[in-house]
Amino acid sequence: MLELLATAEPGGTSLAQALLQQVANGIAKGSVYALIAVGYTMVYGVLQLINFAHGEVYMLGAYFSYYPAKWMGYTTDPEDPTFVPAKVPLYVVGFLFVCSMACCAFLGMLIERFAYRPLRNSSRLAALITAIGVSLLLQNGGIMLFKADPRGFPTLIEQSSVDLGLVALTNTKIIIVVVAAVMMTGLHLFVQKTRPGAAMRACSFDMRTARLMGVNVDGTIGLTFAIGSIMAAVAGVLVAMDQPTIDPLMGLMAGLKAFVAAVLGGIGSIPGAALGGLLLGVTESVVGTFSTTYAEAVAFVLLILVLLVKPSGLLGKSGREKV
């Protein structure tokens, strides 16, 4: 990718090629945003709450697979540079993913039970500030427990570049796109085709009526948090695998941007989250071709533009205030 950029000349075919390459990178980046964004969109759909702590769940997802890997001896040792970690077998990779997903699902339900449920009937503002509080707690708790400096993530899969004709991507990026696509499709089918999914839709449509119809509302909300957290955990491990470093603040920006992606696609809509994530990832990467620092601002500029032009997002339903 760097070579491509280095040879790129404005106006030439190589610039077009570099842009195409950036679009491909953007799709990988956007898949991660989309995975995190579903957590925001589902919780907002049901509780009308911006779950600020969701970005931190994503960060912890990475740590929940880092520690088991470390205990099993698959990570480099900073004290002993000569130590060569063993190659991680595929079943261990699977175990690390499952471990991280299970821990995050539990954490998500824990957060809902102890921080958000007591506030379900108080003002939206109180809930929003609690969410900020939970986010601060997890972030600073993370800094305290894991230390603020970044850690090297074990090499789960040896990175190599794969030539896809016009563009080249690393195999980890391809895995990100494939896993994200599979999980998003699975989630969509779950919400549309199964009974718990129908309960979730019922709760987001009208919680009170759903309760009257015999839906276990508390259970469904817990399930919503668990599923959102599982998606975030997968995103966390995938990113850690691709980037190979993790730190306690990695959830802050990723979480904010994923929220922007959710708003972009229309909050409450799962296909919207996927579309918003991809759109944001691609735009960011393309702008990044010209200026990496300004690429950081893209998400927020897009956010404000979308809110001004179509506040309900690309695929969202618009509601009207009744008098």
């Binding site: 506030l119 108080s122 109180a126 509080g133 601060l136 707690l137």
Partner: peptide
Amino acid sequence: PGIRMVVYALVLILLMIFRP
């Protein structure tokens, strides 16, 4: 080290739950 911000966050959450 770092307990300061953790206490700060906890105070915020408890305040919102018990005296929003």
